[in-house]
């Protein structure tokens, strides 16, 4: 683990239009992590009495009970609720909310197998699903995860690597200060080069933070051609089948 660096994004598999009942959907796979996202048309916000000029996003992030080494309960726990809020924040700046005032767009994320980097995968896949659903967006959104332990920086960590990097270790036997360690998830809008969500766990010093943000921004940019290709393939396929029918 010491001194290992990984600054290249792992091979990612993306597919959109996987759930026939949903307006937009996407499937994301990297190594062993698999997740599926579906997006539904804007619907009226329940229990809302006043008028607002912006629409709302409603995100639910869920781990399947068999997705983690220990079985998870069906009730959403604190982790899932927090991840739902993070995804919502990340997507809010990418979606043109003024186009559907007083309505809400539902985004449902289900992680089928969790081997690390599920949160960043969910944000990327949700962006694709929203674009496929025809929800107006300002930009394509992509995200990446970086795990840090001391001087080791690993992009797209596996579950084991993520758990190792959340453990605090002292700098040396005599010092009380902790070494830099943690996990950072960064979501970025590619064309406008704006960061829409920055989520950090752990303890980092400024230098490590600067380097990490640069690594993450490059990683997020690397995923953009894959996202674009996925959407273009989908549009081409739909055009062809529309022309045939």
């Amino acid at each position: 683990m010491e001194g290992k660096q990984r600054s290249n994004v792992k091979f990612v598999f993306l597919k959109c239009g996987v759930v026939s009942q949903a307006k937009g959907s996407a499937y994301f796979e990297v190594d062993n992590t698999k997740l599926i996202v579906s997006v539904y048309d804007p619907r009226e916000i329940p229990k809302k009495t006043d008028y607002s000029s912006k629409g709302e996003l409603f995100c639910i992030f869920k781990y399947a009970p068999f997705s983690c080494p220990n079985r998870r309960a069906h009730q959403p726990d604190a982790d899932e609720k927090q991840h739902s809020a993070i995804v919502k924040r990340a997507l809010e700046s990418a979606v043109c909310r003024h186009e559907f005032p007083n309505f809400q767009v539902d985004v449902y994320i289900l992680v089928l197998e969790n081997d690390g980097s599920a949160l960043s995968g969910a944000i990327t896949a949700a962006g694709i699903a929203l674009a496929q659903a025809g929800i107006p967006m300002y930009d394509t959104i992509t995200a990446a995860t970086l795990a840090i332990q001391g001087t080791t920086k690993l992009l797209d960590p596996t579950l084991e690597e993520e758990t190792l990097c959340t453990v605090a270790t002292h700098k040396s036997d005599t010092e009380i200060d902790y070494d830099s360690h943690g996990i950072i998830v960064l979501a970025m809008l590619s064309t406008h080069e704006q960061i829409s969500e920055f989520y950090q766990l752990g303890n980092l010093d400024l230098e490590t933070l600067n380097e990490s943000v640069n690594i993450l921004m490059n990683a997020a940019k690397d995923i953009v051609p894959l996202v674009e290709k996925c959407l273009v393939d989908y549009v081409t396929k739909t055009l062809k089948s529309n022309a045939e029918s």
């Binding site: 759930v19 009942q21 949903a22 579906s38 539904y40 639910i60 869920k62 009970p65 069906h74 449902y108």
Partner: peptide, 15 residues
């Protein structure tokens, strides 16, 4: 056994 029909699979189901 437990069957889960999440809102992911169809617009008929609510969280």
């Amino acid at each position: 056994c437990n069957v889960d029909l999440p809102p992911l699979c169809s617009s008929k189901f609510r969280p």
